[in-house]
Design a protein around this nucleic acid. Structure first.
Lengths: 328, 328
DNA sequence: GTTGGGAGTGTAACCGGTTACAATTCCAAC
DNA sequence: GTTGGAATTGTAACCGGTTACACTCCCAAC
């Protein structure tokens, strides 16, 4: 306990005023005479006084904090989403707790614990069981980021149209006939939807959906999937996200093979790497920062008691680069 | 404001006891008769009561939270470090605020604000100006992660011996004579030290230190550095971390060149990708999770008023794989 | 039949702020 | 010289917990 911090009452005594006046000066509300204000400000200045967040929050009945629950914490997808969240939260003086469920042994109980210290939560789809979401929603506002099969109060997501367009592009424009879906449809609702779009695009052309190769969503998983993809004799690998795609691409190039010559590879998200690598990665651009920002805005609105639209769908966009065979 | 949460006094009234008894039952301290305990537990159960973190923290004079300040939030380095931090904090019921300085416009003032809601901070070297560190340290315990030129109370870091060994290995064993250092020595104290070790290893053999190519520490920066590295006619690229190295490797492979044939590439950190890619990345393994865990342990000790050792140095280890020319 | 002590419980103060309301002061207007 | 209202400031309650301390029982020991 190294806490020798000043409290309002001490500052008040030092400045020769009441705690109410100190509070008024610090917060800049109510009316205070210039002379008094100067006295108080001098004392605040001198002792570097900052009100305890606890007292403040208790009095306001508001934590001034929210939590964001993600599947994992690594990678550019997460970074960009968080970026969006903070771009909204920080200017409003709201602090953000980032929770990665994969790190926690006992996620459910721990989330209940986190709930005690925030005013609301933004939860990434596919991270938390239905019962827990409901329990959390009973305690404070909850916004879901991305699709989730659960009965969620408020959802922000992107559509899958561009992804479906991507698959059709590979089939119809590039004439590919043996596509593999790299990613686990059961791993997250987002992936489930993509798998469905993948299958639908095939069906539309009277084709049977390609095989699926169940892997995780990180770069390492893409690398590890390479052997199986190459052994399968596929002409294109449609990856669940860019990170997997980039890992796969790296592994394929490392074996001395060519992309798209020997294998077409595509991703989803359009993370910064995707436009830089050669060949450039064909992918679906999703407004990740905007996704995080929107979720946060809605969450703060909910916390303030406003009514908000239950579902917000942000647009995604097909980005054709060299890895699919375009501009080759 | 959607808060209809129960308070101790309400639960107490419902159970027909005093608030003290409710607290005793919930916390499991003091003596309570079996009958009373049952009554109270029933009420707690029925209303899903959980004590407000604010009240609890205020009464305990402890936030039960700490902050970790990082340069950025993306990538496996950060993820692994955080992993270590949480492995210590979470079991002790301490929550972790992750702060990425690159996201904040006005970092200093914001950190002072964060300081109001935590019991201590672990600060990554090279992220925060000296004056701010001192101001923070005046408010609560501070532990630095990694080297930092500032007069820090407590530091946890890894040594640079393995890195120096790596450079010597390239020069002496592989006979490389035109190495480029990829990374900005002025960007972080960690990099400064590595640059010094790089130069020292050259000097030891009577060589002049190679050139330095100033870039950031993310994968994208490695990709972007490729043109300049390849144009420079270097025989080896010693990268400041694995992410840059992997980005560079990807770009080189993408151009149809070979590693290590056309260019030797090495990194630092030994992130998961490094052992998976082909060629495997020669690098310096650093105990990142342990780094985070140790820093957190020390921080919690400081918060509890214990004396702690001012500097802890964790070992790093050279990992030779194919990218340097070994096992080729 | 006292006495002593431990178990069970409640009262009330306290943690560090905010703010409704009351009290005081000061002036302008009548 | 009153009077009324605005400006300034203080008092005290309250936010939701924890806990020192006091009090009441109850029973064993003498």
């Amino acid at each position: 306990m190294t806490d020798d911090r000043m409290s309002v009452r001490e500052i008040a005594k030092l400045a020769g005023v009441s705690t109410a006046t100190v509070s008024r000066v610090y917060r800049g509300v109510g009316s205070v005479s210039a002379a008094t204000r100067a006295k108080v400000q001098a004392a605040i200045e001198q002792y570097g006084y900052r009100p305890s967040h606890l007292g403040e929050a208790l009095a306001n009945r508001r934590h001034g904090a929210l939590a964001v629950v993600f599947p994992g914490l690594s990678g550019p997808y997460f970074a960009e989403l968080i970026n969006g969240v903070e771009s909204v939260a920080v200017p409003r003086q709201v602090s953000v707790h980032v929770i990665g469920t994969h790190l926690r042994r006992e996620a459910p109980d721990e989330l209940l614990d986190v709930a005690r210290r925030v005013d609301g939560m933004a939860i990434h789809g596919g991270t938390v069981p239905k019962t827990v979401i409901m329990e959390l929603a009973a305690r404070h506002p909850v916004v879901m980021i991305g699709p989730d099969p659960h009965p969620a109060p408020v959802v922000v997501r992107t559509d899958q149209q561009a992804f479906r367009l991507l698959v059709s592009h590979l089939l119809a424009d590039h004439g590919l006939r043996k596509l593999v879906f790299v990613g686990n449809p059961e791993g997250s609702p987002d992936l489930t939807e993509r798998w469905e779009a993948f299958a639908a695009a095939h069906a539309e052309l009277g084709l049977r959906p390609g095989k699926q190769l169940r892997t995780g969503l990180e770069q390492t998983h893409g690398v590890q999937a390479a052997d199986e993809v190459l052994a399968g004799g596929f002409d294109g690998a449609v990856c669940g996200n860019d990170e997997t795609a980039l890992g796969l691409m790296m592994a394929v190039l490392g074996r001395g093979l060519r992309v798209p010559g020997d294998l077409v590879i595509t991703g989803v998200d359009d993370v910064p790497m995707s436009s830089l690598v050669s060949p450039g990665l064909t992918t679906v651009a999703r407004p990740l920062a905007e996704l995080g920002a929107t979720a946060t805005r809605l969450l703060l609105d909910l916390i303030n008691g406003a009514d908000v639209v239950p579902e917000t769908v942000l647009p995604s966009r097909l980005v054709r680069r060299a890895s699919c065979g375009c501009r080759d």
